[in-house]
Amino acid sequence: MITINNISKSYNKTEALKDISLNVNRGELFGLIGADGAGKTTLMRIVTTLLLPDSGEAKMDGLDIKKDFKKIRHIIGYMPGRFSLYQDLSVEENLQFFATVFGTTVEANYDLIRDIYYQIEPFKNRRAGKLSGGMKQKLALSCALIHKPKILVLDEPTTGVDAVSRKEFWEMLKKLQQKDITILVSTPYMDEAILCDRVALLQNGQILDVDSPTKIIEKFQRKIFQVRSDNMYQLISDLRKFENAESVFAFGQFVHFTGINDSVKADELDKYLQSLGHKNILVEKITPGIEDVFMELMEGSRSFQSQ
């Protein structure tokens, strides 16, 4: 449904995208996962025909992003990272405006947006600029959907959104997927990566890996321990001083520890921490999560670059 071949894009000297290729299948919920500056927005702006690549080709449902840009704009819905609806128009006026621009009516496609729009319908006469963050997000999604697009492109729809609203938003995306809409979504949240069918991990304009989240985790062979003791700050700094420590990072209530060449054993760490006076020590080997994998891939490519 989306094919991207060897796309590169630079802004002056900064290479935002370096020879990116990837495919998104029809009906897929595909995630672009990466931090600020990874190149997610640039890639989205290119496939939505808002920006031309320096080189490479891309097609949306068989249409070329350069030759067929007008046609592409009719079959995609795009929700940019920054709120870009008309602040001075009311909720209802914004929705009507977008429907009219695409030559349709709110009534014709109301079915598609009903589940989302009914939550903000009580405020339909309020100006968009006066809505709360969560409501703005729902209105923006409704406007992006009102012409019944085949492909929905969402740029960090959940950044700055609280944990509960994020969960609700992803439930909405899953429902839209059922209605035969292909979704390309970007996020800096690793827990959202798990909810995608497939993801591309992006860093510094390059793809570190593309696969289903489960396969990405399966491929990862490192031995990771979760460690806990009563003093978190002391624990992190002591573990970093351990001679065979490779990476030591806080993960919620635990610290995740990877040893050089995976040579470190659990009882070794336990003894080491005991000798330093830590109390209530727990060291156990765990199955890594997507965040562990991403961090390892990132660190790997970082040290590669600095060499």
Binding site: A35, D36, A163, P188, Q203, Y233, F249, A250, F294, M298
Partner: peptide, 29 residues
Amino acid sequence: GVDPVTRRRFWDLIYEAANNGTTIFVTTH
């Protein structure tokens, strides 16, 4: 919006400041 490694390095600084006696009042999602 930052990557998971940078986010944790940032928390290293927070821990350090707290350890030096600064009170930290923080909001996060």
